[in-house]
Nucleic acid binder design. Sequence first.
DNA 1: CAAAACCATGGAGTGGAGTCAATGGTTTTG
DNA 2: CAAAACCATTGACTCCACTCCATGGTTTTG
Lengths: 121, 121
Amino acid sequence: MRIGELSKRSGLSRDTLRFYEKQGLIHSRPGAAATNNYRDYPKDTLIQLEQIADAQAAGMSIADVILFLSQLEAADSDDFDGEAFLQARIDEITYRIKRSERFLDSLRRAQQVLATPPTES
Amino acid sequence: MRIGELSKRSGLSRDTLRFYEKQGLIHSRPGAAATNNYRDYPKDTLIQLEQIADAQAAGMSIADVILFLSQLEAADSDDFDGEAFLQARIDEITYRIKRSERFLDSLRRAQQVLATPPTES
DNA sequence: CAAAACCATGGAGTGGAGTCAATGGTTTTG
DNA sequence: CAAAACCATTGACTCCACTCCATGGTTTTG
């Protein structure tokens, strides 16, 4: 799949896709046709982009996502404590969700207030 | 409360607090002592900072938080559709939480994989 | 086959959210 | 009362995640 189609399907701009690739988040095999140097993305890139979006929604930086991905691929490289890394992210995200829900509640309360007809003091 | 104490209690830097104040997120009455121009923060600023942190955790920008706050104070200004604004934020955040939880699940699965002793093929 | 549509690279620019540094005034403390 | 600790302002700077542009090559299409 070429970048234009991936862009359309993922909803991300071409520039963002090229940026992600430069960062190492996604990969393309260059020019299958060999005549040009157009990027050619495997179809599961779309799924990966979804996962990246999930990670970003959870507050992870691109650098974190890269660390996480490299972690999955080389699960037994022992120069890096993957378990600690994972646990730290899990804790962070759990905490973030808790805070988000608290904020959501206050938005709902505000909604209640707005929905209530003005006081007839 | 002066900025140093607020900083210590909130865990935010003085610079961040001054930055927030410039943005209009928090307020101080200047120099109660009248002799200096030190900021003096009411004690409920701490609570407000907590709420701001919640909002940020939920992915809201500072500009959004300001809009939200102004919304609570002037609930009947009719040049702005507060209900639509609130509903949009609620939807956004709900969606973000859903994505975060999906990502959390994949982290937990990765954790499982790491915890599993290497295959004895 | 020419115009339109698509692709590439490199590098500059943007916006959000702080962070740092320089300079100088005020309070607290031993 | 001097030194240390605290405070103020202004403006420059950083980092992140894009986004835009200029320039030029490749494909597709009518």
